[in-house]
Each structure stands twice: as structure tokens, then as C-alpha cells.
Write a protein that binds this DNA or RNA. Structure first.
Lengths: 138, 138
DNA sequence: ATAGCTGCAAATGCTTTGCAAGGCC
DNA sequence: GGCCTTGCAAAGCATTTGCAGCTAT
């Protein structure tokens, strides 16, 4: 898979969700969606972009993360008040959170089984169930 | 139970965990620990204190919430990046989070059963498992 | 007396916003 | 061309911190 085809794929992917494939969005998407699934914060993505020689303002990184989340390309994970994490893996799964390092890691969905879940309170519906396994250095 | 005995209880409780029963801490603890278990943010507690005619600075509210959490009188719940919630119920249980209203509600521990949990990654230990059931208006 | 607390205001860290300039269709 | 995007800098929020003055023991 060469650089051109990656670019074309990303471009299509953005168009499919109704987002214009601007240079910034394509560059950021290329960083996010090439290789394995992973987690990021606005700051790590911004830093990774700089390292890759991609120039994008931090405001645009925030905008992009939220837009991608809205259209289902990313999923937001809340583990830390004060910082937002995003996950390129949008399928159902849960997380380890390494509190010492501030790092997230996926737990395969087979390893977390909820045997019982409450009904949603009257007048509401469950939008998502998050399981966070917080770990610290042994 | 009259006002005096509540005050005495709170004072003892603070001493037992190694915190000086200052006026501010006793006043805040009285607001928190009288009545049913409930959830709060620094802001709601500060507002409640004002309503009750208790004068405490917001900085002290933050300090107190964190000190109480450290000694196990409160538990911090992370559901929203941007705001910290605290729970007077420190026993093991999980939460509904009403995303529209920004409100937390306890789920009785019987209603959430984790049948399977992953082992902690090598070199780490599980410090806590949080289950957040996010709900929205039906 | 003295170690610990509190309050204020300033500082911080992350995130959002307003608006002019630029780019995609 | 027209509408959507971007970037910058400023504003916004929740939270933390420095430090002088106060208080519990």
C-alpha cells in the first residue's frame, strides 16, 4: 500500500462521513488511522503531527478530534477529569487505565463480561456502558 | 439526634482520620454526611454551603474534598472531563450518569455483576474498577 | 508556641471561541 | 464564488498554588 492509496482511502473515508478532506484533516487522519488502533489526547496528537512534519494548529486538532468523534470515526474515553482521550477503536470494548502514567490500553471484550446490568431509569435509555479498570504500579 | 451530637460525631470522625476539626471542615462535613448518601462537585458543595449560611472559600472546598477523599471519607468519580464528582458512598458500587443533566446516581452493587475481569498487566495491580452506565433522555 | 489551615488572588492547564484569511467544491 | 475550515490569539472554566494571617492543640 503506497502513499498515494493511503491518501485516497483517507479522502474517501472523510467524504463518506460528510467531512471535507482538507489538508489538515487528511494529515491527522493519516496519523491516526495508519497502523494499529491507539489512544491519544489532543496534545499527543498535536505533538505527533509536529514530529511528522505536519503543521496543524492545536485548535484544529481539537476541532478535528470532536468532528471525528461525532461522525463515529473516533470514540471518546473519560478516565481523567482534566484531559480527554480518544480511541481509534470504536467497537465495543473496555479499558485499563494506568493511573501513574496516564496511559490507556484496550481490554479485549472477551475479558470483561457484565453478567448483570440494571435497566435504564424510567424516561432514559442507556447510551453506553464504560468499564474502566484502574491500575497502579504493583 | 440534636445539633450538638452531630457536631461531636463529625469532630470525632475527623480526628479519627487524622484531620483537625476546623470550623470549615466540620461545617462542610455536616453538609455532606447528614442525610442520605449523595454526589457533589466542588461547585455544588460551595453553593450548598452558601445557602446554609456557611462561609467557606472555594479553594478550601477543593482542599477539603481532596483531603476527605485521601482519607477515605469520600470517593471521587470520573464521568466528565472538566468536572470532578465526589460520592459520600465509599462502598463498592457503580453509577448511572445522566449525560443530559450532568447528574450521577448510584446503582446498587447487586445490579451490576462483572462475571469476568482481566488480570492486571504484569507489574501492576488493580486499584479499582469503575462501571459507568451512561444514559440519555429516552 | 507551633504546626497545620484558610482565604485571597494570581497562576495553571486544558479546551473553546471569535473572527479574518484561506481552501475545497 | 460561496461556504466551510483554519489559525491565531484571546477568553473560558475548573482547579491548583503561593503566601500572609489565623487557629486548633
Amino acid at each position: 500500500m503506497n502513499a498515494h492509496s493511503v491518501h485516497a482511502q483517507i479522502t474517501d473515508r472523510l467524504r463518506n462521513v460528510g467531512l471535507r478532506p482538507t489538508r489538515q484533516r487528511v494529515d491527522l487522519a493519516s496519523l491516526m488511522f495508519v497502523g494499529e488502533d491507539h489512544h491519544m489526547t489532543a496534545e499527543t496528537l498535536h505533538r505527533d503531527a509536529s514530529s511528522a512534519g505536519v503543521s496543524v494548529s492545536l485548535a484544529t486538532v481539537y476541532n478535528t478530534l470532536h468532528q471525528f468523534t461525532q461522525v463515529g470515526l473516533l470514540r471518546e474515553i473519560v478516565v481523567d477529569s482534566g484531559r480527554s482521550y480518544f480511541d481509534t477503536n470504536t467497537s465495543e470494548h473496555h479499558h485499563f487505565y494506568f493511573e501513574d502514567k496516564g496511559v490507556l490500553e484496550d481490554i479485549s471484550s472477551a475479558d470483561v463480561v457484565l453478567a448483570e446490568l440494571p435497566d435504564a431509569p424510567a424516561g432514559s435509555k442507556i447510551s453506553r456502558v464504560d468499564v474502566i479498570v484502574r491500575v497502579t504500579e504493583a
